[in-house]
Amino acid sequence: MPVITYRQALNDAFAEELSRDENVFLMGEEVAQYNGAYKVTEGLWQKFGSKRVIDTPISEAAFLGMGVGAAMMGLRPVVELMFWSFAYVGLDQIINNAGCIRYMSGGLINVPMVIRGPANGGTNVGATHSHTPENFLANTPGLKVVCPATPYDAKGLMISSIRDNDTVCFMENTLLYGDLGEVPDGAYTIPLGVAEVKREGIDVSLIAHGRAVLTSLAAAEILSAEHGIEAEVVDLRSIRPLDEETILNSVAKTHRAVLVDENKPFCGVSSQIAALLAEQAFDELDAPVLRVTALDAPAIYSMPLEKLQLPDAQVVVAKVLSSF
């Protein structure tokens, strides 16, 4: 199987869908002639032309709203945000329009749009460029939220998201764009709402999404090698819809859960998982549910301190050990 980057996996997904469906188009800042600020759309403008791959001005509210309007009419916009942090100037369009129009029209309208881009901290760019809004977009019924951790998942989930008839907020990670992984040629789909056990274990469940999955896998190796603890790593992949069954099955097996999350702790994704476990896995638990999240402060600029703000493997290991 070909080994390609997370970035290339996304690029391949766009090329597949642009070729398959003429209603699919990409737009965003620098996506066409500049080849993408993070080169995720590299080469697509040359291949598909200006009708299908469109540079926009720096006007997030306007181009997100234009995407919603075009999607209402049956097109399938894939709208890039250079950073998900920039969505904040266009949230009216995402939440009020993409998220609520179907409901407010009594089901007369749907908005088959993908809004995508990186949503991560840890890149030394300060608070305004380091937001992780998966929790509050998943807080809007009507929106779907996807956070792939690997190249294979990125391609399959992107193709599913483009084909989905609802708005999908697709959150990538600049720190993962260069990661390599095995990815099949051609189109394949990974359904939204299906988590994956990325590592089998019996002693504790590490439940994570996005880059925190990789942190959890690293922590699991340390736990195994140094402490004889076999951790199971559950990758949520999609936040909404959420695969609760896989989470509950894992905790029923391990009886311990540590939630690893680059989201902030207050009402973060891990809060929702903790509530789920409290409600539905109380009798399975041999220890309190614990969390490792981003530190609860705006993303700091200073590089060594920023590294402390996001979960790393050693912190996860320490948290797991505290649960025994």
Binding site: G65, G69, A71, M72, M73, Q93, N96, N97, I101, S105
Partner: peptide, 24 residues
């Protein structure tokens, strides 16, 4: 196509309708 409650929020949607007309 509505019927929108947030002042000005419908303007880009209108632009999207026009975009889709031209695209098609």
């Amino acid at each position: 196509w509505g019927g929108h409650g947030i002042v000005g929020g419908q303007a880009p949607l209108g632009m999207g309708l026009a975009f889709a007309l031209k695209y098609k």
